[in-house]
């Protein structure tokens, strides 16, 4: 088969996976509405909390109030894409239950298939949920609602920030999904995934800025943590959309996200293939 003939069918295959996952994720309308309400409430309470801190001591803020508020709303809107607690239980059971051999029969790369699944389900959940939150948050009064990134003065600045944020979101999706792969693959070795998930949740929560935006950690932490893959998930796009990271800083951050994505995908794929060999040898 020539390379040219192979290409479209290859893409087509993963697009089909993507499509199935994506439409499955769109089904749960009532759950999505309830999720939006919950995420909105969370964001609202957080902005009120940071406002309370701001009233106490603005000078202790590592970034502007508007940047903080933007961070919070943007994270809440995109939460179902960033979160570190959503997993595909069918992948876990494929590994622990042994139906993995069924998956291996399919004529496609298992790693690519799982990664596609993960990206699609994250994207489908976020597509429904992000818009209502972003829209409502934009109409809230200043200091509480979302605005264009701090420091944007011209339409050109806004377009630039928007474009960089979008690209950064793609980077986030790839990084978070490829980290998710590592959790799946570790199941080959532990068989009980609850522990790994728990540790991952803790680590991602702390190092990824789920607890507090990374700049709010004690001084010096952010200088180091910004280079880790966990910061490439929610911290990067949220700080860019807040205006904390602008211009060259923003571009550098996005670049780093894609480097991490590439590194994680390549190593994850290698690890999966090695683990599969182990299973095949053991399982006979």
């Amino acid at each position: 088969m020539s390379e040219a003939a192979k290409q479209p069918s290859f893409l087509h295959k993963y697009l089909a996976f993507f499509h199935i996952r994506f439409s499955a994720g769109l089904q749960y309308r009532a759950a999505a509405l309830a999720g939006i309400a919950t995420q909105f409430f969370w964001g609202f309470m957080e902005t009120l909390l940071y406002n309370a801190f701001w009233r106490g001591d603005p000078s202790a803020f590592p970034m502007g109030l508007q940047a903080t508020v933007n961070y919070i709303w943007f994270r809440q809107a995109m939460l179902s894409m960033f979160n570190s607690w959503h997993f595909d239980s069918s992948i876990f059971s494929a590994i622990t239950g042994g139906s993995i051999s069924m998956e291996l029969i399919r004529p496609c790369d298992l790693y690519a298939m799982w990664l596609t699944k993960s990206c699609a389900s994250r994207l489908s959940r976020v597509v429904l949920r992000c818009m209502p939150i972003l829209v409502i948050a934009s109409f809230l009064p200043a200091g509480y609602g979302m605005r264009f990134p701090e420091g944007c003065e011209t339409a050109g600045d806004v377009v630039f920030a928007l474009a960089v944020t979008l690209i950064s979101l793609i980077g986030s999706l790839l990084v978070v999904s490829s980290i998710e792969m590592f959790v799946y693959i570790s199941t080959f070795y532990t068989l009980n995934h609850a522990g790994v998930r728990m540790v991952y949740g803790m680590v991602a929560g702390f190092l990824g800025g789920e607890l507090v935006p990374l700049p709010f950690l004690p001084d010096g932490f952010y200088d180091v943590l910004q280079y880790l893959p966990f910061a490439a998930v929610q911290s990067a796009p949220c700080l860019i959309w807040g205006g904390t990271l602008a211009g060259m800083d923003a571009l550098r951050t996005v670049g780093l996200q894609f480097i991490w994505a590439a590194v994680l995908i390549v190593t994850g794929r290698m690890w999966l293939n090695r683990s599969l060999k182990r299973v095949v040898v053991q399982g006979g």
């Binding site: 801190f53 106490g56 202790a60 702390f206 607890l211 507090v212 709010f216 004690p218």
Partner: peptide, 14 residues
């Protein structure tokens, strides 16, 4: 931890 980090930075809230 969240409370710890925020109160460590700001000292008090309201």
């Amino acid at each position: 931890l969240t409370i710890y980090f925020l109160l460590r930075r700001f000292g008090t809230v309201e």
